[in-house]
Amino acid sequence: MSNRVTVTLTVNGSEHEIEVEPRRLLVHALRDDLGLTGTHVGCDTSSCGACTVHLDGLAVKSCTILAAQAEGAQITTIEGLGGEHSLHPLQEAFWNEHGLQCGYCTPGMIMAAAALLEENPHPSEAEVRRALDGNLCRCTGYHNIVRAVQSAAQAQAPVAS
């Protein structure tokens, strides 16, 4: 596999041109080529969701898409969602509600939750649980993750009372 393709990606607002093997997974392009290691890999089968990023506004599992398929796309990773001094409401909520333990699933979980709240700003508990069923967590039992998503929803766009 010596042939390479040139791929142009806009990641967290910055444009990058990378030369990769056609088979290179987007997640490896993000992690190993661009140094954005906040996106994780937890399985080989698109089951765990640790690699979830936003691609043109949709939550996708970056282990299930080739870097080449993302040509021209706008990608947001956990690093682009919010930083140390500019936490996204979901990051803040995961912190406040103890929505993480080992933290490995957390970036993917937060990215999936962010996509949910874009689509449905005030999800019920059942809607949160259904929306996150493609993201596995082994530590929290999901209890505080669900709390965090609902609390972020409240913080982001309070329901008019």
């Binding site: 906040g38 890999v41 956990i78 930083g83 936490l87 990051q91 995961f94 957390t106 970036p107 937060i110």
Partner: peptide
């Protein structure tokens, strides 16, 4: 108390082995 560990974990700045 909310965790001292979390700021690095929620921002993608933690360093696991593959990082």
């Amino acid at each position: 108390l909310r965790r001292k560990e979390d700021p690095r974990l929620i921002t993608g700045k933690a360093r696991y082995i593959d990082d």
